[in-house]
Design a protein around this nucleic acid. Sequence first.
DNA 1: GTGAAAGCGCTAACAT
DNA 2: ATGTTAGCGCTTTCAC
Lengths: 359, 359
Amino acid sequence: MSARRPTLKETADALGVSVSTVSNAFNRPDQLSRSLRERVLAEAARRGLSAPDRAARSLRRGRSVALGVIYTDRLSYAFSDPGAVLVLQGITQTCEQAELELVLIPRTSVASAEATSVGRSIVDGLIVYSVADDDPVLAAALTQGLPTVVVDQPRAAGPPWIGIDDEQGSRAVCEHLVGLGHRRLAVISAELDRGRVGGLANPARQASSTFSSTVARLRGYRRAVEGAGLDWSTVLVFEAVENSERQGHAAALMLLKDRPRPTALLAMTDQLAVGACQAARGLGLAIPRDLSVVGFDDIPAAAQHQPPLTTVHQPHHEKGRLAAGLVLELVAGQEPVAHRQELPTALRVRSSAAPPPNR
Amino acid sequence: MSARRPTLKETADALGVSVSTVSNAFNRPDQLSRSLRERVLAEAARRGLSAPDRAARSLRRGRSVALGVIYTDRLSYAFSDPGAVLVLQGITQTCEQAELELVLIPRTSVASAEATSVGRSIVDGLIVYSVADDDPVLAAALTQGLPTVVVDQPRAAGPPWIGIDDEQGSRAVCEHLVGLGHRRLAVISAELDRGRVGGLANPARQASSTFSSTVARLRGYRRAVEGAGLDWSTVLVFEAVENSERQGHAAALMLLKDRPRPTALLAMTDQLAVGACQAARGLGLAIPRDLSVVGFDDIPAAAQHQPPLTTVHQPHHEKGRLAAGLVLELVAGQEPVAHRQELPTALRVRSSAAPPPNR
DNA sequence: GTGAAAGCGCTAACAT
DNA sequence: ATGTTAGCGCTTTCAC
């Protein structure tokens, strides 16, 4: 690995021209004669200089050619969440078209100032994806004046926002269950706050949640439950500490201990639902005969699952595409057409939910 | 969105101290008194300056705090390939631990000099993942002296390499099929070259492939076929132009037209295999009764598939982790312990392959 | 413990 | 059509 990166100046000196000529050869072909430009580019290539240094260019121009993404907590989790992968794909697609790099920014564990750093010049705009209401990263980005859009959470954020109507979606699945005749329900919830306590969460803890999508979905369930004349306080809520089948499994095991046993499980994500199904099966319960399980997200695996999961569809890919497009508008200095875009969800009735047993 | 990003100088002036003091407050806490540091940091925070400008810092220091990834062709495809997603997750995990950003670098369609640009200072190291032998991007990175490691392809690359023994893996599945009694085989191949012609590929075209993993897998199949005393030229090879179920579907439709009909399909990826299964089913063929189908990769969906896919397992996640670790060593200036790491594959016998019918 | 000054590599305004 | 020049915002000796 050689030491120094070739520079414009070097190339210029070798050719006996000025740096700006070399710079122009790269940036403004029309500013010099065709032949000179070719000579310059050839010499540059020979020296391994395929383009001007990015850091210097960014510093000088005051902007880079990249978008950043910040995801809740551990960045690597984004890749184990099929929904997040689709969102990222949508974002990437837009970046690709705009020939922009995509910078995945990890959250450092340390709570230093550095930790919330999202300096301009390394990215021109930022997508803050699914972050807690009290996450300092949003404020940091905003005070820096970095063009920022929020995806999903926090819902109440000041900057442009793209997400779905979580409450409506969760209410729809829950009403479906209630409509089927279920009266004993239990919820497998996503994270309630950054503390991620996990386990059974009483109403007080539910109320203190700082993940606004979680809050909204919980509210949707609750509305449906109370709409059916049932008492929300009888509905057990288990907080999963991460979106994984493992947690869904653990949650179901816990919830199914309750007596009389719930006849339906409302999982806040499909992955949690899948894990719950496994747990139920391990307990000898057939789905949907002995137990109904519904999810949320409609990840690709939901339809493949046995039995196919009844769930709430949301346009992940679209969400990503639109979010990236919105940041681009912001970066370009345009006033975005739509400051808040709430994308529709749709109940997907498949076969993991059926009327409760012995009825 | 405010105009300018706050600077160290501004903060320094407001406080009546020098820029270097502010810089020290961020970078070398021990260089100033505790109280001054606190005052500085407070003032900085008030101005929305959470950290020094990244571009300026990178320029000055000669390095950034990021790794880059370049993936074949369209970056967004990486997110629709479950194997690639796992590799990215592995990479991300290592980045996270090292508190490094991950830059996904799109390939620009234009074949300009700019297109192959991977300037230092925006990334400290580069992972070139699954790229054609003749892809100019590798040479560009190398002549720039950017610490680079290759994952999967090209296999013969000069820089450190991490991948699997493709030939051994494909040979193993194919021998499995031959051992089951299959004599009429057909192959659904991954891309043969950057041109991506698609469709049936004769031996000449097969031989001209510039994707070295594809070449190796093809060779593995061939060895197994010839090892059984069969003639490779009777084995139809269909080139898929992308790794998708769709292409697998199209390929199978084509290959199953041949008479006598193949009794087994060797798909070079699980996604192609899944698509092939769908096509076969559409033709009224039961798997594995009427047709055996095997894949490669052992993506998570392979085991979930109906029927569970017989395939070749490879450690995607591990590959990503190790690759990122290797770049890190290079960046640190260390001579890497292992310059070439060939990770093991393992045949996973499940139920999508069985003895051929009427035998 | 704090400040002054040089310069990282580049671009863009201005000269020629 | 090409060159000169002044910084972009920061880090880092080196003085004090």
